[in-house]
């Protein structure tokens, strides 16, 4: 009985600590959510998480965007870039990973090494050369600088992740498939790709989140407001030298989190399996 009480108390204490830490970690998100329903001129004076004056006007005003283009446009642009990036990465990174993991070709080790080196190259080093290149192609103010490189399997991180995953799959499966009449392409499509779903889900999630949250590249390549994305739209609500629309900023920030939440929680099961089996869990 005494032992049971001790276990119960210990469990209660542990849960209380977890809840407190969890609340502390969630507090900024809760504050953001709460601020999105506050009257703008009370956001920084009303410290409570429960608004004294409740308003939905921040969402209405925020959705109108910057007057000339609504926030719906920014969401549509962000979705277009993120979804196309996901599609491109899933197809081309997995094909490239299959080649590195299973096929034999001249200079395989060398090219794999080169690919790993690109992961270590700071992206800022290539900023101006990339801009010059895309500008010559006439791709500024289009979505091509975000999608085309992904269709050339330039995201070395995901290739590496998928290579690790495919290397963990037994080669006997390939051999059996060959006996059954499969060629290299069908082995990839019918045997390996279905088995790499957890790693592909990880690729989908990270590609979507990183593209959705990317600000710097979108700032460089998109200069017309009609092509602006969600992070750029949010930035326009802030103006240190003029009038900042805090209410609209927090309301649209809250909305911008929804796709990430939905995607993450709906794929959480696969995602956890993906990171557990690809060695990226650290």
């Amino acid at each position: 009985m005494k032992k049971q009480t001790k276990t119960l108390l210990s469990s209660l204490a542990m849960n209380a600590i977890i809840i407190i830490i969890g609340f502390a970690m969630l507090y900024p998100v809760l504050w953001l959510f709460s601020a999105s329903f506050k009257v703008p001129n009370t956001i920084f004076t009303d410290a409570s998480l429960i608004p004294k004056a409740f308003t939905l006007n921040n969402y209405v005003k925020g959705w109108r965007g910057i007057g000339i283009y609504g926030f719906g446009t920014f969401f549509a642009n962000s979705f277009a870039i993120s979804l196309l990036s996901v599609v491109a990465n899933v197809i081309f990174c997995s094909i490239t990973a299959y080649a590195f993991a299973r096929l034999e070709f001249v200079g395989k080790r060398f090219w794999f090494g080169i690919m790993l080196v690109t992961m270590m190259l700071p992206s800022h080093v290539t900023t101006i050369p990339r801009y010059v290149l895309f500008n010559r192609f006439g791709w500024i103010n289009t979505f091509l600088p975000f999608i085309v490189p992904k269709a050339l399997a330039t995201d070395a991180f995901f290739i590496f992740l998928l290579v690790q995953f495919i290397r963990g799959l037994p080669r006997e499966l390939d051999e059996s498939a060959v006996i059954d009449g499969c060629n290299k392409w069908t082995i990839y499509l019918k045997i390996l790709m279905p088995l790499t779903v957890p790693a592909l889900i990880t690729t989908v999630l990270f590609t979507f989140l990183w593209t959705w949250d990317d600000f710097f590249n979108q700032l460089l390549y998109l200069t017309r407001p009609e092509l602006f994305t969600v992070p750029m739209g949010l930035r326009l609500f802030l103006d240190s030298s003029g009038v900042s629309s805090w209410g609209s900023l927090f309301a649209m920030s809250t909305l911008s989190l929804i796709p990430c939440f939905i995607l993450f929680f709906s794929l959480q099961k696969y995602f956890v399996r993906g990171i557990a089996t690809t060695g990226i869990k650290g």
């Binding site: 965007g65 910057i66 007057g67 000339i68 326009l236 609500f237 003029g242 009038v243 629309s245 609209s248």
Partner: peptide
């Protein structure tokens, strides 16, 4: 550079 009001 500037925010929503300045853009409008």
């Amino acid at each position: 550079w500037g925010g929503e009001a300045r853009i409008e």
